[in-house]
Design a protein around this nucleic acid. Structure first.
Lengths: 212, 212
DNA sequence: ACGTCGATTGCCGTTTACGACAATAGACGG
DNA sequence: CCGTCTATTGTCGTAAACGGCAATCGACGT
């Protein structure tokens, strides 16, 4: 679809902890008459505050931020304002991030290598009630339909495996038997298609379950 | 230090695969009369070409890029033009990236959460012959003075460990004995302060030796 | 020529990891 | 009430990982 009808200019909120990125987005958006006020926030807390006060039409939300991350910010925003329309705009292509964002109620997910034209188009689509995904994200979504995600307990175990604890130690730390720790690890390995705990940790990083 | 003397405006080259980031940097720099032409490249190859044709005063170089990454681009640039002045401008705080950049001849390393004023100041300092590091990067540098880095062979082994191969398999893949593979892994674990192979993989990701 | 370092390999013994087979119990949704 | 899912634990046995001790060999720099 090409340019579509637009009556009144949109009010946009940018949430990103990189000042230069905000400047770039703002300068691009303000060149288009479709966009009026472009508000900015550098962290989750101020983003929520600005949202409450201004109720922007569309919010562009980054994931990696100092303090509360973009996913948590999104969760809180949607909890308070279920009608908020949010487009995730981030560098992360981790399947976990994508999945969490969609489950939390994002209206779209595009990576930061998007160009100005596509972004403007995406924002319009989001505002019009549509959902938007960049090509690479669509691919990730398709790949990971089958891959079930880890339970909270399993993530807890994986964090300990990552730190080099033995099954016995993990059992004691979680106050369960060594055998139980092993059961969780087996399940993790199966879900992540990893042949041993080292590979499981690697897959954890690749999926975004574990973060550096 | 405050504003310093500046006779002729500087010519800057931006290398970053995010169009919005380039737009932000360009808009900020062009607001300052100290900066004249702001050239842009979205990948390593075109960056090198533009550099050869225009010999910019200072180059801002991102690390994570499609195709040739920023470190490789830097290496080639410095090989051909040892006098090039390059400021790494990236999101990565991985110690490996920092170390590689400095060894390859970067004049500075700042993370992308830098604000406009500090960036302008940093660019001036770089052009004046100085070296610039953001605070968090300085801390990383201090931490990792002692931590020796892995040899090429060890990195090769770590990549295989990451994929879940056993010592035996790693030995066969590298055409050495299982005992040798183990020796490498022991060395890796010691250097990365990891208690087992799973923790070593995790540390590999944390340091930037392994990439998602 | 000497010392250092990385790569290589061997043996022996202990510790862990992991797979197969089985089973119990609480939670949650239909 | 029933099926599914998650967490839990057991036993037995095999395979793999790891630590310590020791040594050779070639490359590289002083």
């Amino acid at each position: 679809m090409t340019a579509q009808a637009h009556r009144k200019p949109l009010r946009i909120l940018l949430v990103d902890d990189h000042p230069m990125m905000r400047a770039g987005l703002a300068s691009v958006l303000l060149m288009d008459p479709d966009f009026a006020s472009v508000m900015q926030a550098s962290d989750g807390d101020s983003a929520l505050q600005i949202w409450r006060e201004n109720q922007p039409d569309v919010t562009l939300l980054d994931i990696s931020m100092g303090g509360m991350d973009g996913i948590d910010t999104l969760r809180q925003l949607i909890r308070d304002f279920p009608s908020a329309r949010v487009l995730m705009l981030t560098t992360s292509e981790a399947s976990e991030d994508i999945r969490h964002a969609m489950e939390a109620g994002a209206c779209g997910y595009v990576t930061k290598n998007i160009n100005a034209g596509d972004l403007v188009e995406a924002i319009r689509a989001i505002h019009a009630g549509g959902k938007v995904f960049s090509e690479d994200v669509k691919r990730k979504l398709a790949e990971n339909v089958a891959s079930g995600h880890l339970t909270a307990r399993e993530i807890e175990v994986l964090e300990l495996v990552r730190q080099g604890f033995t099954n016995d130690e993990i059992g004691r730390l979680l106050d369960v038997s060594e055998r139980t720790a092993r059961a969780h690890i087996s399940s993790i390995k199966e879900k992540l298609h990893a042949s041993d705990r080292a590979a499981a940790v690697a897959r954890g990083f690749e999926c975004g379950i574990l973060k550096a």
